[in-house]
Design a protein around this nucleic acid. Structure first.
Lengths: 207, 207
DNA sequence: AACAAAAATGACACCTTGTCATAATCTTCC
DNA sequence: GGAAGATTATGACAAGGTGTCATTTTTGTT
């Protein structure tokens, strides 16, 4: 996370830097992102960057806080719209997400799938772990929007385990869709549907 | 995959290069691996490297073929030892794998978790996709070593879906164990057990 | 205003990668 | 054997990346 100095900066400058970071990180994958380009874009000298951030990871994590709120917030809305049904909600959410990603070819999605720890970082916020107050709130909301009684889980421990399994499947599928060889929109959607349906068949309570 | 020129090289030189690649890729994560170090280690000039390989990814994929055979082969033996019970086999296999990884702190494991597409590449060999003849054979053996009748899967399609879900959970857990904050050996093992047990409870046929 | 602390700055050292002109070597054919 | 042609080897080079640090500028305090 940014150093003290960064937060003392005028709002305008902070935003300019965040915007440049966002442009860079949504354009190329993390490992290809360049500090050089970001500072050129933001119009700050090289030395200043290191006055504000430790390194690329540092500014990325800062940027990610924003991105997280956006994603988790949107998902929570979606869960509510589906009356707490997590699995129906995710299908809907991913359909939109993929469509969007196919429209703006590849942009943005790279943020999530480019490094294993990134999705995990996002996902962890639905579980626990240290996050900023704001993100914590968003996380709590998301979790409590789910109607857990519809799933066949023994106790809170397995509830947590399920969230991990669920997250793993989504991440894995996202990687597959956006990382490997080309795939049509229909194929991509279908890939998700199949997997979520399998989870539903085995994890939803039967009457 | 390597260019023609590489395969015309004397065996000894090929092996020297592969060995150097292996040392590099098992020491640092993919994005930090340096061609420079590899060629220095292997004692070949810079220009030659590009005569043999396209780039870092190219030599990595070459190295990975070897690594895959090792991993998939070992897992197949383990599946057989468990009479085809996939879930029991994976618990056993991962226990060993993690113990090994904790002994030689962090070495090797990086290969798998450092980039999302790597594990997928390995895993894909249990499903299909283009692989070398040798790997294909290993893959077929692995798949047919599993006693699928013990799992509650509708048809071959869901069998395939399950392999993905299964792989996703393992990869996700590996990332969690080796990527994020420190974790004790016991905690790590327990993390896997919990998740595999949940899968077992929901995916194994009930009497 | 004078002094100390904090922040800004860009040149620098050192790394990386991929290319390319040239040199060395191997093939082939007469 | 030797000359021509194809293939391979080689390291210097350009272009770009990162993190540091001595120096200048700004800010805050007495």
């Amino acid at each position: 996370m940014p150093k003290q100095t960064f937060y003392k900066l005028p709002q305008e400058k902070q935003e300019r830097i965040l915007a440049a970071a966002k442009r860079e990180f949504t354009k190329v994958r993390f490992s290809d992102a360049s500090i050089n380009r970001m500072i050129r874009d933001a119009g700050i000298p090289r030395g200043s960057f290191y006055q504000y951030f430790e390194d690329k990871t540092d500014i990325f994590l800062f940027f990610l806080e924003d991105y997280k709120k956006e994603i988790l917030g949107g998902f929570t809305v979606c869960i509510r719209a589906h009356g707490g049904e997590l699995l129906s909600a995710i299908v809907d959410f991913l359909d939109d997400f993929i469509e969007e990603a196919f429209k703006n070819p590849r942009e943005g999605i790279r943020v999530i799938v480019s490094e294993p720890w990134i999705f995990e970082n996002i996902w962890a916020d639905m579980l626990g772990g240290e996050s900023s107050k704001e993100v914590s709130r968003v996380k709590q909301e998301g979790r409590s929007a789910v109607d857990w009684s519809k799933l066949d889980l023994l106790d809170e421990a397995e509830e947590e385990v399920f969230i991990h399994i669920f997250g793993a499947v989504i991440r894995d599928s996202l990687c597959e869709v956006f990382h490997r060889n080309e795939m049509s929109l229909e194929e991509a959607k279908n890939l998700f549907h199949e997997r979520i349906e399998s989870l539903r068949r085995h994890y939803e309570k039967r009457p």
